[in-house]
């Protein structure tokens, strides 16, 4: 049962690539190394980081403390995107409450010819000034939150280049275990430091249980 489900996708992938051999010949994508233990993975990640690789990734079935550091991953820039979103939302909120509540031809003659529906209403509420911050904080606050959440959400999607439906590592049969009990490092051939033989040798030295070539 398990064998059947494991082999089937590989066969169909092989068939598909055979059919499309003229246009989409399988291209060498990179190397995939498999590790049995977390410690091996961490040690290997440090070596690869120190060898100057930039286009590579670790795959683990669970979060591992300190892997970011071992990989030399730079701290995320996402908070700045979120902050920019927040500031935008705050400014838009201010503009919204100002435009809809406090604009009139008397205070701003330039809008005198603007249609009434577009230029706001001059609502006189509870004896408060037209532009009255204490009353206006809720919409400004909500827009700030909304836009900073947009920044965080869409910024994350964009920075991770999502949505992405395929990765060449899925072509490896072994890789199915990345969601079970094995740890993987994939190094892309496009990395400037990459060399097919030397990198394979380096990965073998790091104590990998296996090193295989990935095709796409």
């Amino acid at each position: 049962m398990t064998t059947a489900t494991e082999t089937q996708p590989v066969e169909s992938a092989a068939v598909a690539s055979d059919e499309a051999v003229d246009i989409h010949a399988p291209q060498f994508h990179g190397l995939l190394a498999e590790y049995a233990e977390v410690d091996d993975l961490m040690a290997a990640a440090r070596k690869i980081r120190d060898a100057g690789f930039t286009r590579w990734e670790c795959f683990t079935p669970c979060p591992i403390h300190g892997l970011d550091k071992a990989m030399g991953v730079q701290h995320t820039k996402l908070p700045f995107v979120s902050l920019a979103g927040g500031i935008t939302g705050c400014a838009l909120g201010l503009l919204l409450v100002f435009w809809t509540n406090a604009i009139s031809p008397e205070t701003l003659p330039i809008i005198g010819d603007t249609p009434y529906a577009v230029r706001g209403y001059d609502f006189f509420i509870s004896g408060k000034p037209f532009f009255s911050l204490p009353a206006n904080i809720p919409p400004i606050f909500e827009l700030t939150i909304l836009f900073s959440a947009f920044g965080a959400f869409f910024g994350m999607i964009a920075m991770n280049m999502l949505p992405r439906f395929h990765n060449p590592v899925f072509n490896s049969r072994r890789f199915a275990k990345a969601s079970d009990d094995r740890f993987f490092i994939a190094v892309e051939a496009e990395d400037p430091v990459f060399d097919r033989e030397k990198t394979a040798a380096l990965l073998s030295e790091t104590g990998a249980a296996s090193v295989e070539e990935l095709e796409d």
Partner: peptide
């Protein structure tokens, strides 16, 4: 603090 202030400021 704002919630406490705003409601009472508005009601006056």
């Amino acid at each position: 603090a704002y919630s406490q202030y705003m409601l009472q400021w508005y009601g006056a």
